[in-house]
Design a protein around this nucleic acid. Structure first.
Length: 472
DNA sequence: TTTTGAGTTGTTCGA
DNA sequence: GTCGAACAACTCAAA
Protein backbone atom coordinates (compact mmCIF):
# COMPACT_ATOMS: atom_id res chain seq x y z
CA UNK A 1 0.00 0.00 0.00
CA UNK A 2 1.31 3.46 -0.97
CA UNK A 3 1.09 5.37 2.32
CA UNK A 4 2.55 8.56 3.76
CA UNK A 5 2.68 10.18 7.18
CA UNK A 6 2.04 13.89 7.82
CA UNK A 7 4.02 15.14 10.80
CA UNK A 8 2.42 18.35 12.15
CA UNK A 9 4.67 20.77 14.05
CA UNK A 10 4.13 24.53 13.77
CA UNK A 11 1.52 24.18 11.04
CA UNK A 12 -1.52 22.98 12.96
CA UNK A 13 -4.12 23.21 10.20
CA UNK A 14 -5.68 21.03 7.53
CA UNK A 15 -6.22 23.79 4.97
CA UNK A 16 -3.53 25.40 2.79
CA UNK A 17 -0.75 23.31 4.29
CA UNK A 18 2.20 22.66 1.95
CA UNK A 19 3.45 19.38 3.43
CA UNK A 20 -0.04 17.97 3.89
CA UNK A 21 -0.91 18.83 0.31
CA UNK A 22 2.18 17.11 -1.05
CA UNK A 23 1.58 14.07 1.14
CA UNK A 24 -2.01 13.73 0.01
CA UNK A 25 -1.14 14.26 -3.63
CA UNK A 26 1.56 11.59 -3.62
CA UNK A 27 -0.11 8.79 -1.65
CA UNK A 28 -3.30 6.75 -1.61
CA UNK A 29 -3.47 6.91 2.17
CA UNK A 30 -2.02 9.49 4.54
CA UNK A 31 -1.79 9.23 8.31
CA UNK A 32 -1.41 12.31 10.51
CA UNK A 33 0.60 12.69 13.69
CA UNK A 34 1.78 15.21 16.26
CA UNK A 35 4.56 14.55 18.77
CA UNK A 36 4.91 16.29 22.12
CA UNK A 37 8.70 16.41 22.02
CA UNK A 38 10.04 15.79 25.52
CA UNK A 39 13.34 17.35 24.47
CA UNK A 40 11.39 20.62 24.30
CA UNK A 41 8.86 19.99 27.06
CA UNK A 42 11.47 19.04 29.66
CA UNK A 43 13.23 22.38 29.17
CA UNK A 44 10.14 24.49 29.90
CA UNK A 45 10.57 26.33 33.18
CA UNK A 46 6.96 26.35 34.25
CA UNK A 47 4.57 23.41 34.50
CA UNK A 48 1.79 25.83 33.53
CA UNK A 49 2.89 26.75 30.01
CA UNK A 50 0.52 28.73 27.81
CA UNK A 51 2.02 27.39 24.59
CA UNK A 52 1.25 23.83 25.62
CA UNK A 53 -2.34 24.89 26.23
CA UNK A 54 -2.54 26.55 22.81
CA UNK A 55 -1.15 23.42 21.15
CA UNK A 56 -3.56 21.20 23.10
CA UNK A 57 -6.54 23.21 21.93
CA UNK A 58 -5.25 23.31 18.37
CA UNK A 59 -4.59 19.60 18.04
CA UNK A 60 -7.98 18.86 19.60
CA UNK A 61 -9.55 20.76 16.71
CA UNK A 62 -7.14 19.13 14.26
CA UNK A 63 -8.14 15.68 15.53
CA UNK A 64 -11.85 16.56 15.34
CA UNK A 65 -11.38 17.71 11.74
CA UNK A 66 -9.66 14.43 10.90
CA UNK A 67 -12.33 12.39 12.71
CA UNK A 68 -15.01 14.08 10.58
CA UNK A 69 -13.20 12.65 7.56
CA UNK A 70 -13.03 9.19 9.12
CA UNK A 71 -9.36 9.66 9.97
CA UNK A 72 -7.71 10.78 13.21
CA UNK A 73 -4.60 12.32 14.72
CA UNK A 74 -1.93 10.05 16.20
CA UNK A 75 -0.36 11.80 19.17
CA UNK A 76 3.01 10.75 20.54
CA UNK A 77 4.92 11.83 23.62
CA UNK A 78 8.67 11.29 23.69
CA UNK A 79 11.86 12.28 21.88
CA UNK A 80 10.54 13.28 18.48
CA UNK A 81 13.64 12.18 16.60
CA UNK A 82 12.99 8.64 17.92
CA UNK A 83 9.18 8.65 17.99
CA UNK A 84 8.62 9.71 14.39
CA UNK A 85 10.80 7.02 12.75
CA UNK A 86 9.32 4.47 15.16
CA UNK A 87 5.79 5.48 14.19
CA UNK A 88 6.69 5.44 10.49
CA UNK A 89 7.81 1.84 11.00
CA UNK A 90 4.64 0.86 12.85
CA UNK A 91 2.52 2.34 10.08
CA UNK A 92 4.70 1.01 7.29
CA UNK A 93 4.76 4.36 5.49
CA UNK A 94 7.28 5.08 2.79
CA UNK A 95 7.59 8.82 3.32
CA UNK A 96 7.15 11.26 6.19
CA UNK A 97 6.06 14.83 5.35
CA UNK A 98 6.73 17.97 7.36
CA UNK A 99 7.14 21.70 6.84
CA UNK A 100 10.46 23.52 7.14
CA UNK A 101 11.76 24.62 10.46
CA UNK A 102 14.61 27.15 10.60
CA UNK A 103 16.01 26.89 14.12
CA UNK A 104 19.33 25.10 14.59
CA UNK A 105 18.04 22.59 17.15
CA UNK A 106 14.98 21.71 15.09
CA UNK A 107 17.13 21.35 11.97
CA UNK A 108 19.40 18.93 13.84
CA UNK A 109 16.31 16.99 14.94
CA UNK A 110 15.02 16.84 11.36
CA UNK A 111 18.39 15.68 10.03
CA UNK A 112 18.42 12.91 12.61
CA UNK A 113 14.87 11.88 11.68
CA UNK A 114 15.84 11.86 8.00
CA UNK A 115 18.91 9.69 8.68
CA UNK A 116 17.00 7.24 10.84
CA UNK A 117 14.22 6.95 8.29
CA UNK A 118 16.75 6.48 5.49
CA UNK A 119 18.45 3.62 7.32
CA UNK A 120 15.09 1.89 7.25
CA UNK A 121 14.41 2.57 3.56
CA UNK A 122 12.09 5.49 4.23
CA UNK A 123 12.44 9.24 3.68
CA UNK A 124 11.57 12.65 5.11
CA UNK A 125 10.24 15.29 2.70
CA UNK A 126 10.00 18.90 3.90
CA UNK A 127 8.43 22.00 2.39
CA UNK A 128 8.28 25.76 2.79
CA UNK A 129 5.03 26.69 4.50
CA UNK A 130 5.67 29.05 7.40
CA UNK A 131 6.76 32.10 5.38
CA UNK A 132 6.19 33.57 1.92
CA UNK A 133 9.91 33.64 1.06
CA UNK A 134 12.66 31.70 2.83
CA UNK A 135 16.41 31.16 2.72
CA UNK A 136 17.82 32.37 -0.65
CA UNK A 137 14.55 33.26 -2.34
CA UNK A 138 15.01 37.01 -1.92
CA UNK A 139 18.58 38.22 -2.53
CA UNK A 140 20.30 41.48 -3.43
CA UNK A 141 21.26 42.20 -7.04
CA UNK A 142 24.70 40.87 -6.12
CA UNK A 143 23.18 37.58 -5.01
CA UNK A 144 23.75 38.19 -1.30
CA UNK A 145 21.23 37.98 1.54
CA UNK A 146 19.93 41.39 2.64
CA UNK A 147 21.24 42.92 5.87
CA UNK A 148 18.82 45.83 5.77
CA UNK A 149 15.05 45.63 5.97
CA UNK A 150 13.90 48.30 3.53
CA UNK A 151 15.65 47.04 0.39
CA UNK A 152 14.63 43.52 1.45
CA UNK A 153 11.02 44.66 1.64
CA UNK A 154 11.24 46.22 -1.82
CA UNK A 155 12.74 43.07 -3.29
CA UNK A 156 10.14 40.97 -1.45
CA UNK A 157 7.30 42.93 -3.05
CA UNK A 158 8.96 42.79 -6.49
CA UNK A 159 9.23 39.03 -6.31
CA UNK A 160 5.72 38.44 -5.02
CA UNK A 161 3.33 36.93 -7.56
CA UNK A 162 0.06 35.01 -7.27
CA UNK A 163 2.09 31.82 -7.29
CA UNK A 164 3.55 32.50 -3.85
CA UNK A 165 0.26 33.25 -2.10
CA UNK A 166 -1.93 30.64 -3.78
CA UNK A 167 -3.51 28.23 -1.31
CA UNK A 168 -2.60 24.55 -1.41
CA UNK A 169 -5.98 22.86 -2.04
CA UNK A 170 -5.58 20.07 0.51
CA UNK A 171 -9.34 19.46 0.59
CA UNK A 172 -9.21 18.05 -2.95
CA UNK A 173 -7.64 14.91 -1.52
CA UNK A 174 -9.22 14.70 1.92
CA UNK A 175 -10.66 11.26 1.07
CA UNK A 176 -7.08 9.99 1.26
CA UNK A 177 -6.75 10.80 4.96
CA UNK A 178 -6.50 7.50 6.79
CA UNK A 179 -7.60 6.36 10.24
CA UNK A 180 -4.73 4.95 12.28
CA UNK A 181 -4.86 1.19 12.85
CA UNK A 182 -6.03 0.31 16.38
CA UNK A 183 -2.69 -1.35 17.17
CA UNK A 184 -0.96 2.05 16.80
CA UNK A 185 -1.08 3.78 20.16
CA UNK A 186 -1.89 7.45 20.65
CA UNK A 187 -0.85 9.35 23.78
CA UNK A 188 -3.61 11.26 25.60
CA UNK A 189 -3.13 15.04 25.61
CA UNK A 190 -4.97 16.17 28.67
CA UNK A 191 -2.88 18.52 30.83
CA UNK A 192 -2.52 15.74 33.41
CA UNK A 193 -1.30 13.22 30.83
CA UNK A 194 1.33 15.72 29.70
CA UNK A 195 2.25 16.62 33.28
CA UNK A 196 1.17 20.21 32.74
CA UNK A 197 -1.18 22.44 34.68
CA UNK A 198 -4.09 24.02 32.85
CA UNK A 199 -3.65 27.76 32.31
CA UNK A 200 -5.77 30.45 30.67
CA UNK A 201 -4.63 31.87 27.34
CA UNK A 202 -5.66 35.16 25.76
CA UNK A 203 -6.36 33.63 22.37
CA UNK A 204 -7.88 30.18 22.08
CA UNK A 205 -6.12 27.69 19.80
CA UNK A 206 -7.31 26.24 16.53
CA UNK A 207 -7.98 27.41 13.00
CA UNK A 208 -11.56 28.49 13.66
CA UNK A 209 -10.31 30.92 16.31
CA UNK A 210 -7.52 32.05 13.98
CA UNK A 211 -9.95 32.77 11.16
CA UNK A 212 -12.35 34.63 13.47
CA UNK A 213 -9.47 36.72 14.78
CA UNK A 214 -8.38 37.62 11.25
CA UNK A 215 -11.94 38.52 10.19
CA UNK A 216 -12.29 40.71 13.25
CA UNK A 217 -8.96 42.40 12.50
CA UNK A 218 -10.03 43.15 8.92
CA UNK A 219 -12.94 45.22 10.29
CA UNK A 220 -10.43 47.58 11.97
CA UNK A 221 -7.39 47.24 9.70
CA UNK A 222 -7.99 50.73 8.27
CA UNK A 223 -6.97 52.19 11.64
CA UNK A 224 -3.88 49.97 11.85
CA UNK A 225 -1.29 52.63 10.95
CA UNK A 226 -1.96 54.72 14.05
CA UNK A 227 -3.85 52.35 16.35
CA UNK A 228 -1.10 49.71 16.28
CA UNK A 229 1.09 51.84 18.54
CA UNK A 230 -1.42 52.38 21.33
CA UNK A 231 -1.30 49.50 23.83
CA UNK A 232 -4.55 50.44 25.58
CA UNK A 233 -6.61 49.78 22.44
CA UNK A 234 -6.85 46.77 20.15
CA UNK A 235 -4.91 48.16 17.22
CA UNK A 236 -2.72 45.22 16.21
CA UNK A 237 -3.91 42.03 14.53
CA UNK A 238 -3.15 39.92 17.63
CA UNK A 239 -2.49 37.06 15.25
CA UNK A 240 1.08 36.40 16.42
CA UNK A 241 0.31 33.18 18.26
CA UNK A 242 -1.71 31.84 15.32
CA UNK A 243 1.19 32.65 13.00
CA UNK A 244 3.56 30.95 15.41
CA UNK A 245 1.66 27.66 15.42
CA UNK A 246 0.29 27.80 11.89
CA UNK A 247 -3.37 27.90 12.86
CA UNK A 248 -3.59 30.57 10.17
CA UNK A 249 -1.93 30.38 6.75
CA UNK A 250 0.55 33.15 5.94
CA UNK A 251 -0.47 32.88 2.27
CA UNK A 252 -4.10 33.44 3.12
CA UNK A 253 -3.30 36.46 5.32
CA UNK A 254 -1.06 38.16 2.75
CA UNK A 255 -3.43 37.39 -0.10
CA UNK A 256 -6.49 38.80 1.66
CA UNK A 257 -4.67 41.81 3.10
CA UNK A 258 -3.35 42.79 -0.34
CA UNK A 259 -6.83 42.33 -1.80
CA UNK A 260 -8.19 44.60 0.94
CA UNK A 261 -5.72 47.18 -0.26
CA UNK A 262 -6.17 49.95 2.34
CA UNK A 263 -3.16 51.83 3.68
CA UNK A 264 -3.60 49.98 6.97
CA UNK A 265 -3.68 46.59 5.27
CA UNK A 266 -0.57 47.40 3.25
CA UNK A 267 1.26 48.57 6.35
CA UNK A 268 0.32 45.33 8.05
CA UNK A 269 1.69 43.27 5.14
CA UNK A 270 4.98 45.12 5.60
CA UNK A 271 5.00 43.93 9.20
CA UNK A 272 4.58 40.37 7.89
CA UNK A 273 7.57 41.09 5.63
CA UNK A 274 9.57 41.78 8.81
CA UNK A 275 8.64 38.27 9.89
CA UNK A 276 10.08 36.81 6.67
CA UNK A 277 13.11 39.08 7.05
CA UNK A 278 13.98 37.93 10.59
CA UNK A 279 13.40 34.32 9.55
CA UNK A 280 15.74 34.73 6.57
CA UNK A 281 18.37 36.44 8.72
CA UNK A 282 18.37 33.58 11.23
CA UNK A 283 18.82 31.12 8.37
CA UNK A 284 21.88 32.94 7.02
CA UNK A 285 23.40 34.05 10.33
CA UNK A 286 22.48 31.35 12.87
CA UNK A 287 25.07 32.74 15.31
CA UNK A 288 22.73 35.61 16.21
CA UNK A 289 20.95 33.48 18.81
CA UNK A 290 23.98 33.94 21.07
CA UNK A 291 26.20 36.60 19.45
CA UNK A 292 25.70 40.08 18.08
CA UNK A 293 24.90 40.26 14.37
CA UNK A 294 27.58 42.93 14.19
CA UNK A 295 30.65 41.15 15.60
CA UNK A 296 32.22 44.36 16.95
CA UNK A 297 29.43 44.54 19.50
CA UNK A 298 30.35 41.21 21.07
CA UNK A 299 32.86 43.29 23.04
CA UNK A 300 30.17 45.35 24.80
CA UNK A 301 30.50 45.17 28.56
CA UNK A 302 26.98 44.53 29.77
CA UNK A 303 26.19 44.89 33.44
CA UNK A 304 25.55 41.57 35.18
CA UNK A 305 23.17 42.95 37.78
CA UNK A 306 20.78 40.29 39.06
CA UNK A 307 18.96 42.74 41.31
CA UNK A 308 18.13 45.24 38.58
CA UNK A 309 17.25 42.38 36.25
CA UNK A 310 14.78 41.00 38.81
CA UNK A 311 13.21 44.45 39.19
CA UNK A 312 12.75 44.61 35.42
CA UNK A 313 11.32 41.08 35.25
CA UNK A 314 8.87 41.70 38.05
CA UNK A 315 7.72 45.11 36.91
CA UNK A 316 9.08 47.22 39.76
CA UNK A 317 11.54 49.56 38.05
CA UNK A 318 9.65 52.67 39.09
CA UNK A 319 8.95 53.52 35.43
CA UNK A 320 5.19 52.97 35.09
CA UNK A 321 5.07 52.12 31.38
CA UNK A 322 7.93 49.62 31.72
CA UNK A 323 6.36 48.03 34.78
CA UNK A 324 2.93 47.89 33.15
CA UNK A 325 4.50 46.18 30.13
CA UNK A 326 6.31 43.58 32.22
CA UNK A 327 3.24 42.89 34.32
CA UNK A 328 1.21 42.44 31.16
CA UNK A 329 3.75 39.85 30.04
CA UNK A 330 3.83 38.11 33.42
CA UNK A 331 0.07 37.91 33.88
CA UNK A 332 -1.10 37.30 30.30
CA UNK A 333 1.83 35.77 28.36
CA UNK A 334 1.62 38.64 25.88
CA UNK A 335 3.14 42.08 25.46
CA UNK A 336 2.10 44.76 22.99
CA UNK A 337 4.56 45.39 20.16
CA UNK A 338 5.30 48.99 21.12
CA UNK A 339 5.94 47.95 24.71
CA UNK A 340 8.32 45.17 23.70
CA UNK A 341 10.53 47.93 22.30
CA UNK A 342 10.12 50.11 25.37
CA UNK A 343 10.88 47.21 27.74
CA UNK A 344 13.83 46.00 25.66
CA UNK A 345 15.27 49.49 25.36
CA UNK A 346 14.96 49.96 29.11
CA UNK A 347 16.77 46.72 29.92
CA UNK A 348 19.57 47.16 27.39
CA UNK A 349 20.04 50.95 27.47
CA UNK A 350 18.84 52.20 30.85
CA UNK A 351 20.02 49.18 32.84
CA UNK A 352 22.75 48.13 30.34
CA UNK A 353 21.92 44.51 31.06
CA UNK A 354 22.76 41.81 28.52
CA UNK A 355 20.07 41.58 25.81
CA UNK A 356 20.32 37.79 26.02
CA UNK A 357 18.90 37.86 29.55
CA UNK A 358 15.89 39.76 28.29
CA UNK A 359 15.55 37.59 25.19
CA UNK A 360 15.54 34.48 27.39
CA UNK A 361 12.95 35.98 29.73
CA UNK A 362 10.62 36.80 26.84
CA UNK A 363 11.21 33.29 25.47
CA UNK A 364 9.99 31.76 28.71
CA UNK A 365 6.90 33.94 28.96
CA UNK A 366 5.57 34.78 25.50
CA UNK A 367 2.68 32.72 24.16
CA UNK A 368 3.69 33.83 20.66
CA UNK A 369 7.43 33.27 21.21
CA UNK A 370 9.35 32.71 18.00
CA UNK A 371 13.13 32.44 18.15
CA UNK A 372 13.90 34.34 14.94
CA UNK A 373 11.52 37.20 15.73
CA UNK A 374 12.51 37.50 19.37
CA UNK A 375 16.26 37.48 18.68
CA UNK A 376 15.95 39.82 15.69
CA UNK A 377 13.89 42.37 17.56
CA UNK A 378 15.97 42.21 20.75
CA UNK A 379 19.13 42.80 18.74
CA UNK A 380 17.41 45.67 16.95
CA UNK A 381 16.42 47.23 20.27
CA UNK A 382 19.93 46.74 21.65
CA UNK A 383 21.38 48.42 18.50
CA UNK A 384 23.56 45.42 17.70
CA UNK A 385 21.51 43.66 15.02
CA UNK A 386 20.78 43.88 11.32
CA UNK A 387 19.49 47.27 10.32
CA UNK A 388 20.31 48.30 13.85
CA UNK A 389 18.81 51.39 15.31
CA UNK A 390 21.78 53.69 15.99
CA UNK A 391 23.24 53.20 19.45
CA UNK A 392 22.58 56.81 20.41
CA UNK A 393 18.86 56.30 19.96
CA UNK A 394 17.74 55.57 23.49
CA UNK A 395 14.04 55.41 24.24
CA UNK A 396 12.95 57.78 26.94
CA UNK A 397 10.45 55.68 28.93
CA UNK A 398 8.54 58.74 30.13
CA UNK A 399 8.29 60.28 26.66
CA UNK A 400 7.19 56.94 25.18
CA UNK A 401 4.57 56.66 27.90
CA UNK A 402 3.21 60.16 27.28
CA UNK A 403 3.13 59.59 23.56
CA UNK A 404 1.59 56.12 23.37
CA UNK A 405 -0.44 55.91 26.59
CA UNK A 406 -1.46 59.58 26.88
CA UNK A 407 -4.36 59.09 29.30
CA UNK A 408 -2.51 56.40 31.26
CA UNK A 409 -5.22 53.82 30.60
CA UNK A 410 -2.74 51.03 30.01
CA UNK A 411 -0.70 51.89 33.10
CA UNK A 412 -3.85 51.98 35.24
CA UNK A 413 -4.84 48.53 34.03
CA UNK A 414 -1.58 46.77 34.87
CA UNK A 415 -0.22 48.98 37.67
CA UNK A 416 -3.43 49.57 39.61
CA UNK A 417 -1.65 51.17 42.56
CA UNK A 418 -1.08 54.19 40.30
CA UNK A 419 -4.71 54.40 39.15
CA UNK A 420 -5.38 57.46 41.32
CA UNK A 421 -2.80 59.62 39.51
CA UNK A 422 -4.16 62.08 36.93
CA UNK A 423 -3.14 61.55 33.31
CA UNK A 424 -0.45 64.26 33.29
CA UNK A 425 1.27 62.85 36.41
CA UNK A 426 0.95 59.08 35.97
CA UNK A 427 3.93 58.72 33.62
CA UNK A 428 6.36 60.05 36.22
CA UNK A 429 4.64 59.62 39.58
CA UNK A 430 7.74 60.34 41.69
CA UNK A 431 7.72 63.87 40.31
CA UNK A 432 4.52 64.61 42.24
CA UNK A 433 4.98 66.00 45.72
CA UNK A 434 4.48 63.84 48.84
CA UNK A 435 1.12 65.42 49.65
CA UNK A 436 -0.13 64.97 46.10
CA UNK A 437 1.03 61.33 46.16
CA UNK A 438 -0.96 60.77 49.34
CA UNK A 439 -3.95 62.42 47.70
CA UNK A 440 -3.64 60.08 44.71
CA UNK A 441 -3.59 57.13 47.12
CA UNK A 442 -0.05 55.97 46.34
CA UNK A 443 3.17 57.04 48.05
CA UNK A 444 6.22 56.53 45.89
CA UNK A 445 8.83 54.46 47.70
CA UNK A 446 6.13 52.73 49.75
CA UNK A 447 3.21 51.74 47.55
CA UNK A 448 5.15 51.89 44.27
CA UNK A 449 8.94 51.93 43.77
CA UNK A 450 10.96 55.06 43.10
CA UNK A 451 12.84 54.91 39.75
CA UNK A 452 15.75 52.46 40.00
CA UNK A 453 17.84 54.56 37.59
CA UNK A 454 18.13 58.17 36.53
CA UNK A 455 17.25 58.02 32.86
CA UNK A 456 19.33 61.00 31.75
CA UNK A 457 22.46 59.58 33.39
CA UNK A 458 21.72 56.04 32.21
CA UNK A 459 21.34 57.28 28.65
CA UNK A 460 24.78 58.89 28.71
CA UNK A 461 26.29 55.76 30.27
CA UNK A 462 24.78 53.60 27.53
CA UNK A 463 26.08 55.81 24.74
CA UNK A 464 29.50 55.78 26.42
CA UNK A 465 29.43 51.97 26.62
CA UNK A 466 28.94 51.78 22.85
CA UNK A 467 31.48 54.51 22.11
CA UNK A 468 34.12 52.61 24.03
CA UNK A 469 33.68 49.54 21.84
CA UNK A 470 33.73 51.57 18.65
CA UNK A 471 36.89 53.40 19.68
CA UNK A 472 38.60 50.18 20.72
C1' DT B 1 32.48 52.53 -11.87
C1' DT B 2 31.41 56.01 -8.81
C1' DT B 3 28.46 58.81 -6.39
C1' DT B 4 24.46 59.85 -4.04
C1' DG B 5 20.60 59.31 -1.13
C1' DA B 6 17.68 56.97 1.94
C1' DG B 7 17.15 54.18 5.65
C1' DT B 8 10.50 51.01 11.18
C1' DT B 9 9.42 52.40 15.49
C1' DG B 10 14.06 58.45 18.77
C1' DT B 11 15.84 62.13 21.79
C1' DT B 12 18.04 66.26 23.05
C1' DC B 13 19.62 70.73 22.43
C1' DG B 14 19.53 75.29 21.13
C1' DA B 15 17.60 78.86 18.35
C1' DG C 1 5.82 75.40 21.74
C1' DT C 2 8.21 74.40 17.36
C1' DC C 3 11.89 73.41 14.38
C1' DG C 4 16.21 71.78 12.49
C1' DA C 5 20.51 69.81 13.56
C1' DA C 6 23.18 66.49 15.61
C1' DC C 7 23.83 62.14 17.20
C1' DA C 8 27.69 57.63 13.04
C1' DA C 9 28.42 54.61 9.93
C1' DC C 10 27.09 51.10 6.75
C1' DT C 11 24.00 48.73 3.34
C1' DC C 12 21.92 48.78 -0.91
C1' DA C 13 19.79 50.66 -5.08
C1' DA C 14 19.57 53.98 -8.42
C1' DA C 15 21.44 57.56 -11.08
Amino acid sequence: MNTGLMWFRRDLRLHDNAALYHALKAHDRVFACFCFDTEILDKLKDRADRRIEFIRQSIAELDAGLQERRAGLIVRHGIASEEIPKLAGELGVRTVYANHDYEARRLARDRLVARTLASDGRSLETFKDHVIFEKDEVLTAAGQPFRVYTPYRNAWHSKLTEFYIKAYPCETYFDRLAAPPTRVKSHPWTPAALNFKQIDILWPGGTRAGRDQFDEFLTRVDDYVTARDIPSIRGTSELSVHLRFGTVSIRELVSEALAHGSAGARKWVDELVWRDFHNMVLHHWPHITTKAFQPAYDALEWRQDRGDFAAWCEGRTGFPIVDAAMRQLNTTGYMHNRLRMVAASFLTKDLRIDWRWGERYFADKLLDYDLSQNVGNWQWSASIGTDAQPYFRVFNPVAQSERFDPDGAFIRKFVPELAGFPADCIHEPHASGPLEQRGYGCVIGEDYPAPIVDHAAARLASIAMFKKVRAG
